[in-house]
Design a protein around this nucleic acid. Structure first.
Lengths: 205, 205
DNA sequence: CGATAAACGGACGATATCGTCCGACTAATC
DNA sequence: GATTAGTCGGACGATATCGTCCGTTTATCG
């Protein structure tokens, strides 16, 4: 009765556009998940995430069909943030060491949003996310190599070294009271360690 | 019938000694828990730990009445290992920087056994454990200050800095393929960063 | 403003893990 | 080798979380 052939075609034509509130909720869920995962780990109950986001658990599953899908989206978001930070660092008008310093400081600052940058756990990494990660690594690598070519940074240091140190700072130590301050101190020491001739820690020149 | 007063006193006298196999199982459970917690997090099912240790779940609960008790024991064990390592480092006949290097390398080596050295999570820290931790920090501090007094190590570096870096290395990054190698590279850079005059990285002298 | 596609949100059965309990077993002692 | 305190280990009911389903609500379009 309802479904004549012409009607079915009509249906396709009469598609409604997506609703804006849906996208808002999607973002709210992702943000709440980022905080919750950092606080309680990847096994945090979906109900907790839903409550924190102010939505029902059904809405969470609507946007992310499974826990893995949600964690995957978190990972993608984190790497995008890393890439953006690396690009801002590369665009700076400063010495290589200071660009790296900027990158590390921003990484510390974004800490709570970088949920699974490299964290293990059941985080599936899709191809698009891998591409973003690779691009971020390349961008950081170009900064590093530039510093090595102009002789200010030790040549033994690899881009992987810097990436791993950044990941350590992003991961953090949950128990340390003032982690951001502590992390900045770690970064200072690390930066001194990759400098080629620490006699002049880059005042002018 | 059974419980005359004299019998009760007999009971106390007739105490059996503890059985050795019980202690063995206790250790096996703790070792299995260390590995399992590192692999799956603090929420790892008790049944998994029991299976890995080759015992029943009842035995796990016998020795550690609750999950928190087990995690607490793990934490204590970790800090004892740290303290022991710090003491071995302090006993070395070497420059301060090399003692710290030894400490960091051993920390990397023991990685899988240092489950909750400072890890957050639901790990209750009892007073005895705090005492062990404090002693470990003091021991490391004395090494550091010695290096600062003889001018080989930068005076801005605090014992907390070194402890936190060690904790980062112990925690690790689960996803990095050859973590121990990567960690050693991090340590090399860090050590260069705390050196006062890296012109002579301590060959002879 | 009315119609309707799309989104919301919580109730629900299924499943997994918890910590306890108790009969079987084993090592230490006589 | 017999006795027995102390240990082992898995079955069990209780509880928590999962992911789905569907009636209700809301934003968009004519």
């Amino acid at each position: 009765m309802i479904g004549a052939v012409t009607d079915e075609q009509d249906k396709v034509v009469r598609r409604r556009g997506p609703r804006r509130d849906a996208a808002d909720n999607r973002d709210r869920v992702l943000a709440a998940a980022a905080v919750a995962v950092r606080r309680e780990g990847t096994a945090v109950p979906m109900a907790t995430i839903a409550a924190d986001a102010g939505v029902g658990v059904g809405t969470v599953y609507r946007h992310y069909p499974s826990r893995d899908a949600l964690l995957g989206a978190l990972t993608h978001r984190s790497f995008q943030l890393v890439l953006e930070t690396a690009r801002r660092a590369a665009a700076l008008d400063a010495a290589a060491i200071d660009r790296i310093r900027f990158f590390l400081e921003q990484t510390i600052e974004h800490g709570s949003d970088l949920v699974l940058p490299m964290h293990g756990g059941p985080a599936p990494i899709d191809q698009a996310t891998v591409a973003v990660r690779e691009e971020a690594h390349r961008t950081l690598g170009s900064i590093l190599e530039r510093g090595q070519r102009d002789g200010t940074i030790r040549t033994e240091v690899t881009r992987a070294d810097v990436v791993i140190f950044g990941a350590l700072l992003a991961q953090g130590l949950p128990h340390v009271p003032d982690w951001k301050l502590a992390a900045r101190r770690q970064a200072d020491i690390y930066l001194a360690g990759i400098l080629n001739s620490p006699d002049e820690p880059g005042a002018d020149r």
